[in-house]
Amino acid sequence: MKRRQPILELIDVHAAYGRIEVLHGVDLAVPVGEVVALLGPNGAGKTTLLKVASGQMKATRGHVHIGGSHVNEVSADAMARAGLCTIPEGRSVFPNLTVTENLRLASYAGAPAERILQIAFERFPRLRQRAGQLAGSLSGGEQQMLAMARALSTEPAVLLVDELSMGLAPLIVQELYDIIAALAATGVSILVVEQFADAALAVAHRAAVLVHGRVVAYGKPDDVADELSTLYLGGAA
């Protein structure tokens, strides 16, 4: 396999909330067109890492590179316009806007609104039925579909997803991960953060395990399985 430069790369990244440091020197790379699963227990710093990578939080030390450019100082909205799509933890929709209005806002990333609506409604007919409804009144799964519709229709180069499965039924989680796999097949590079590993590992090319703000294992999904079992089934956590 030809070695290519990773599209997203974190080098010795430190990050802190006030005086509380959460990431103590993280190195992580997402190769072009691959799915990387970032796993780890509660409070390991997974969400923080995603925030640093997407420009929502500044690293206190270290470097973030996207597509070869140094992006430590780039704001989150500029990154979004440059082709980075971030779906944060929880229901990442605007509850007091309608489904259509939510989708129209996705056009800030660059794609025309008509095209976004067309792609979203084609892939999720449920959303078309609910087009005029407030997003807050949708079920959890439908809201996550709405969030994924943005990733599908704006054609990002890099996709960052946080806790896709949180609070959702297994069938819906499966459907969402199918979409991740389909997106990866079109060449999108993806970083998925998950606390529950199975669904993510099934689609991932690589996996990293984050514990106490440090990456303790990185490699093929099979290779990190041992690390994970000690982590989740006892041992030093």
Partner: peptide, 16 residues
């Protein structure tokens, strides 16, 4: 209007 719901998310959408 979206900014009231969730300002941070709006930035992730690419809005200034």
């Amino acid at each position: 209007r979206a900014a009231v719901d969730n300002r941070g998310l709006l930035a992730l959408y690419g809005a200034r």
